[in-house]
Design a binder for these strands. Structure first.
Lengths: 127, 127
DNA sequence: CTCTCGATTAACCAAGTGGTTAATTGACGT
DNA sequence: ACGTCAATTAACCACTTGGTTAATCGAGAG
């Protein structure tokens, strides 16, 4: 409902569609026309047009008109902000990974020392 | 319309709302009850409940029931995948940054040589 | 038992989204 | 001038989303 959407929200929303992400992935390999971009998908040209408008609205692509073709080019800057935002949570997912590694190592050590002990313990959710 | 949404789409969609991002930011400082999470916002309790269900559906939080409170905890793992996906585009935004730096340096050099030239030029979108 | 409190569910609404087909625009080739 | 081709716009549809208010549920307190 917050209609005056902030940039980050618009960026994440644009990225929340697999077709649009595929388009961006394609554009990372080089500029392309709208037709080329739509070719891999089984959806109509207007549907592609709409996706491109969303991407353009998010500043993730820009279009340059060349005769009757529109050349699309990737503009990755907004991803930078999204990446930075996520970066702030890195230690949280690394902590979870640490807990998993710790669990695996403990299990391995237990197996090596005395095989066939009790039930395999599961990492506590909040240790 | 792809209804069987992939994980990345669900993650990005969950992050595409400022209220939900604020909730995650709050949870990064520690677990909290639903009431505590909703307190900063001027929306109803059911609206918060829905946001939390979206976050839970994306695997970004988990809820533990404690008497009549629900304790919410951050689960940052899905952000890891989103972060990785964006990482693939790093060189693109860094290239753009390079172009900007190059422009600034050029401008600076020009200013140093002949001061007080025309209006301050703005970086071209496609130099 | 009853009342309150934290939280969720139910039912509804307005707006947005992702898709369609049909019509339109604009540049090119003949 | 005409037809064609790339792309967009228009109009429509089904479904989702973010919000509301009212009702419900479950655990404690009196």
């Amino acid at each position: 409902m917050a209609n005056t959407q902030d940039t980050l929200s618009i960026t994440f929303a644009a990225l929340a569609d697999p077709t649009r992400r595929a388009i961006l992935t394609r554009l990372a390999r080089g500029d392309a026309t709208v037709g080329e971009l739509g070719e891999p998908f089984e959806i109509s040209a207007p549907a592609i047009s709409k996706h491109l408008r969303v991407l353009e609205g998010a500043g993730l692509i820009e279009r340059e008109v060349d005769a009757r073709w529109r050349i699309c080019r990737l503009r990755a800057e907004p991803m930078h902000d999204a990446h930075d935002w996520l970066e702030a949570y890195r230690r949280h997912w690394e902590e979870s990974l640490d807990r998993l590694v710790e669990f695996v190592e403990q299990t391995h050590r237990a197996d090596a020392k005395k095989r066939g002990n009790g039930a395999p313990r599961v990492p506590r959710k909040k240790p």
